[in-house]
């Protein structure tokens, strides 16, 4: 069997009746001027919600980040960069940024590598794959706090993970959450485990959108399975890849609940991500410094998210 790839053609030129149909549709809708006049009521809910729950709180928070605002006094006064300097002096700011970035990096890599692998394995829709898709999606439905509590039991020195390892290597009682880097990697892994089911579905949808004809053509050209995946499917998965990488990375920058349920930011400050540090400041009644940390999270999301999206979108065009 041979295949011909049809060149892209102007559909309207090829089928004049479609052009006529579109003209009728425009006439039904009214003039282009009318279109401009009537679109905005539909945008009001979205615009209002964005303003009310994102932009206004964000703008207000910018100001509070530079104020002395505590529960101890009813006066909020401007104090410039003092909150940030205080957080640096206490060793909180740079450390929590570092911890947040490492956490987000680990969570993003694990989620995307694992989910892409699972998507390739579970791409075809059949009874067995549907069952496993459901199983892998279950953690997404679980409360992050519950996931944290469950995993802290699994990872305890006398927990099931160490018992399983002990069956192979003998007595094993490593404290996964008791060593600085292991604790950070473990909580990032829990985050990845929690959300991988969702990312897997995104990749499955992306894979299913790739025409089989391309793979079949590649087979004819002598491409092996790895080449078909890497040079065709992975490149055409670019939109799904962009979405998944951005969502997992940006999502992990806002980590809180899983860390709170497992390590509470410890041991020491090894897993004190920015939101845990913010929570701690807030609990002490230091709302100004908590706002400063909140602003840092926002800046990180914008500073890292925008270039990341721009880079990945460019890659999509190239693909």
């Amino acid at each position: 069997m041979t295949m011909k790839i049809q060149p892209m053609v102007d559909n309207e030129a090829a089928d004049p009746s479609r052009k006529a149909g579109r003209q009728r549709l425009r006439a039904d809708r009214g003039s282009p001027r009318g279109l401009h006049r009537h679109w905005w009521p539909f945008a009001i809910p979205a615009v209002a919600l964005t303003w009310l729950f994102f932009l206004i709180p964000f703008v207000l928070n910018i100001r509070f980040a530079f104020t002395q605002w505590t529960g101890f006094s009813d006066v909020i006064s401007w104090n410039g960069l003092k909150n940030f300097r205080g957080l640096i002096d206490q060793g909180i700011l740079w450390k929590s940024i570092e911890v947040t970035l490492v956490y987000a990096g680990i969570a993003m890599v694990i989620q995307n590598v694992f989910s892409l692998g699972m998507a390739v394995l579970l791409q075809r829709t059949n009874r067995i794959n549907s069952f496993f898709r459901s199983v892998f999606f279950l953690p997404v439905l679980l409360s992050p706090l519950a996931a944290g509590y469950i995993w802290s039991a699994i990872l305890s020195p006398t927990g099931p993970l160490n018992n399983a390892i002990g069956l192979v290597f003998g007595n094993f009682d490593y404290a996964w959450l008791g060593h600085p880097f292991a604790a950070l990697a473990s909580v990032a892994f829990i985050d990845a485990w929690k959300w991988s089911g969702l990312v897997t579905l995104v990749y499955i949808a992306g894979l299913n959108a790739i025409p089989d004809s391309l793979s079949e053509a590649a087979v004819i050209d002598g491409a092996n399975a790895w080449q078909r995946f890497w040079r065709i499917k992975f490149r055409l998965l670019a939109p799904a890849f962009t979405f998944s990488v951005v969502v997992t990375f940006i999502g992990a920058l806002g980590a809180f609940d899983i860390v709170q349920a497992t390590t509470q930011g410890g041991p020491g400050n090894a897993t004190t991500v920015l939101n845990i540090a913010m929570f701690s400041q807030y609990a002490g009644g230091f709302f100004g410094t908590a706002s400063s940390l909140s602003l840092v999270v926002t800046i990180l999301v914008i500073a890292l998210g925008v270039p990341l999206i721009a880079f990945l979108r460019r890659r999509e065009v190239e693909a």
Partner: peptide, 17 residues
């Protein structure tokens, strides 16, 4: 200020960080 942070410093000492 200290009383909400003191215990975290000690877990840092426990873990060697």
């Amino acid at each position: 200020g200290y009383n909400s942070q003191g215990a975290a410093y000690l877990t840092g000492i426990l873990s060697g960080s």
